Amino acid sequence: MTRTTPPRPLDVEALFPELAAHRGTTTRLHPRPGSPGVSDSSVGGPLLWPVDEPWPVCTEPHRRGRGRRPADIHRARRVLATAWARDPASGPTEEERRLLTELGREHRVAGIEDTDPLPMIGVAQLYRRDVPDLPAGPDGCDLLQVFWCPFDRHGRTGYGMSLRLLWRRSWEVDEVPATPPLPEVVGYEGYVAEPCVLHPEQVVTYPFAGLLPEELEARIDAWEEALEEEAEAAEAEMDYDEEGEDSGGHGAGHDAGHEAGHETEPPAYQYDLSIPPGWRAGGFASWHLTDPSPMNCLACATPMELLLTISSSEWDGGSHSWMPQEDRDLPGRLRSAAPTKVTVGRWGLLNIFACPADPGHPHRWSIQ
């Protein structure tokens, strides 16, 4: 099934014509549960990996002998999904709860050292033929593959992630391993993705507000403040009218108004008009957690461009304006904003950057 992003709540270029000069595109990947193959672009699916090529491993020193089994994580998710689909009100049965407790146990791997090679997890692979905004790889490579270590114990702070991106020419791969390597245990279940097929969709996007010209950013800020003031005034007037109609005063009428959904947030540049949430390729990075940080190539100092965004959520909790139309039509129990089950960072978003001068140069990333 395709995924279609609804039209934006308003035409932002009609309000701010200068934005036309900054307009770009990004490809929303729209991962949804499925059974991808090695020849498909996917999240959490099997990778087109040569049988005679060593699998990526993490050798950075950190504890790696205690955690949850990947198979247990997948099974627990299936149990929960079945339970909630069967009975959204009650959820898992007592027997299912006992099973979930067992599947949630951590296990120890005997005899593993802190620097023993640890198989990294294949997170995603993207074929350029499927993703319009995926840039060309080095030396004609057409397939991007993403790996990470399933433990958060890297870098100077001891809490950073370890990420590896590899490009390859897909037509050069003849045979793939029957069973790719997997770590026996993982330190964090959010690094274990559920198999998802992709439904790429190219949409218009605009830069993060803090990277726009100062005068334009100031005008957008003033416009948003005015909308918020109007919304607050309208809500106050509505509450006053409801209190007047309710013979009980400030009580049933006030609650009814809120339950009826009278409170609606006005459209915001950041959350509704510029950068879509979810997994996507190309476009502009969001810097909603930190101030914009220069991302220059460490090899040649060229300003880098957004390659890929890995996100924990396909649409924002505060605004559903980016929810695809096809998902809106699904029953609530079948609609999930987190189909991949991947969780990254404090707010669940990882931006990966590539050098436009030489895509073979090392990538950089930022967690938001």
Results as ranks from 00 to 15, higher is better:
Met1Tyr: 02
Met1Trp: 13
Arg8Phe: 09
Glu13Pro: 01
Ala14His: 08
Phe16Met: 05
Ala20Arg: 02
His22Gly: 02
His22Ala: 03
Gly24Asn: 02
Thr27Val: 03
Leu29His: 10
Pro31Gln: 02
Ser39Asn: 06
Pro50Tyr: 04
Val51Thr: 08
Thr59Met: 07
Thr59Trp: 05
His62Met: 07
Arg63Cys: 12
Gly67Phe: 01
Pro70Lys: 04
His74Ala: 13
Arg77Tyr: 09
Arg77Leu: 01
Arg78Val: 11
Leu80Ser: 13
Thr82Ser: 15
Asp87Gln: 11
Asp87Leu: 11
Glu94Tyr: 10
Glu95Thr: 13
Arg98Phe: 14
Arg98Pro: 05
Gly111Gln: 14
Gly111His: 14
Thr115Cys: 13
Met120Asn: 08
Ile121Phe: 02
Arg128Phe: 07
Val131Trp: 02
Ala136Met: 15
Pro138Asn: 13
Gly140His: 14
Asp142His: 15
Gln145Phe: 11
Trp148Met: 05
His154Tyr: 10
Arg156Phe: 06
Tyr159Lys: 15
Tyr159Asn: 15
Gly160Arg: 07
Leu163Tyr: 07
Trp167Tyr: 05
Glu172Ile: 11
Val173Leu: 05
Asp174Tyr: 13
Pro177His: 13
Leu182Asn: 04
Gly187Ala: 09
Tyr188Lys: 09
Glu194Met: 13
Cys196Tyr: 06
His199Tyr: 00
Gly210Lys: 05
Leu212Pro: 06
Pro213Met: 12
Glu214Pro: 12
Arg219Met: 05
Ala222Thr: 15
Ala222Tyr: 13
Glu224His: 09
Glu228Tyr: 07
Glu232Asp: 15
Ala234Met: 11
Ala234His: 12
Ala236Leu: 04
Asp239Met: 11
Asp241Arg: 14
Asp241Trp: 09
Asp241Ile: 08
Glu245His: 01
Gly248His: 01
Gly249Thr: 12
Glu259Val: 00
Ala260Lys: 03
Pro266Gly: 00
Pro267Glu: 00
Gln270Ala: 15
Gln270Ser: 14
Pro276Ala: 06
Gly278Thr: 10
Ala281Asp: 03
Gly282Tyr: 11
Phe284Glu: 04
Thr290Pro: 05
Thr290Asp: 07
Asp291His: 14
Pro292Cys: 06
Pro292Gln: 14
Ala299Pro: 12
Cys300Leu: 03
Cys300Gly: 00
Thr302Tyr: 00
Met304Gln: 10
Thr309His: 03
Ser311Trp: 07
Ser311Met: 08
Ser312Phe: 10
His320Tyr: 14
Gln325Thr: 15
Leu330Gln: 13
Arg333Ile: 14
Arg333Cys: 12
Arg333Asp: 04
Leu334Asn: 09
Pro339Ala: 03
Val342Pro: 02
Val342Gly: 02
Arg346Gly: 07
Trp347Lys: 13
Gly348Phe: 07
Asn351His: 07
Phe353Gly: 00
Phe353Asn: 00
Ala357Met: 09
Asp358Ala: 08
Asp358Gly: 03
Gly360Gln: 11
